[in-house]
Nucleic acid binder design. Structure first.
Lengths: 102, 102
DNA sequence: TTAATATATGAAAATATATTAATATATATT
DNA sequence: AATATATATTAATATATTTTCATATATTAA
């Protein structure tokens, strides 16, 4: 067997998989997309636009915040979420240009 | 409430989430990485390098093939897998440049 | 201070994904 | 033909993620 070039950084891959997993969900991806088009949005705004149940949306938002993709700031009754990592959008662009056959 | 710019293409997002989910796994990401560095590799090669159990690896490979990310060709006893979508690498690069805080 | 609104929390239930193990298949070698 | 090797398949099990629901908390308004 030929020697295989092997420069895999295990830690990096695990980190990458972790982030990918976080955004690999239609609703969460939609949130990222929405927030890439709008500087910041309240939970309610997003709820309306995505027609997603409030509590479920909250779970998603908090999950993404926990993983460093979103940030939030409270303003009165509302909590506004925004993209912490605008780079995440690049992922979606990549994906859009990559057409797999299925 | 202000009107929210909303140009989300639901189908596109679902497709993107689908692909993301497929690569959002340390082993599968390692496979993509390995194959981005080596034109093609047999199941055994990958097995050795990643120290992944044969059957499990097979599951992963077939899964990724099914989803259009890999292709395979048989040569004698071996089956060689290669990246069908070299663009998938861009995902990993994106991720590497995006440093979230966790 | 009561009521209304926005958001979060926690636990249970539903669903999906990953892993293992045993075995099958196909090809090559003796 | 028998054996060895590489890969795939299947079903069972383990584990993780998503969704739902009921309820809590915090803030504002009446």
């Amino acid at each position: 067997m030929a020697t295989i070039a092997y420069q895999i950084n295990k830690e990096k891959l695990e980190k990458a998989a972790f982030i990918l997993k976080t955004v690999a969900h239609p609703t969460r991806l939609a949130i990222v997309d929405l927030l890439s088009q709008n500087e910041k949005l309240s939970v309610n705004d997003i709820c309306d636009v995505l027609a997603c149940e409030q509590s479920l949306l909250s779970h998603h938002l908090i999950n993404m915040k926990l993983k460093g993709i979103l940030r939030s700031e409270k303003d009165g009754l509302n909590v506004f979420y925004s993209l912490k990592e605008r780079d995440v959008m690049k992922l979606i662009e990549c994906i859009e240009h990559c057409d797999c056959n299925y």
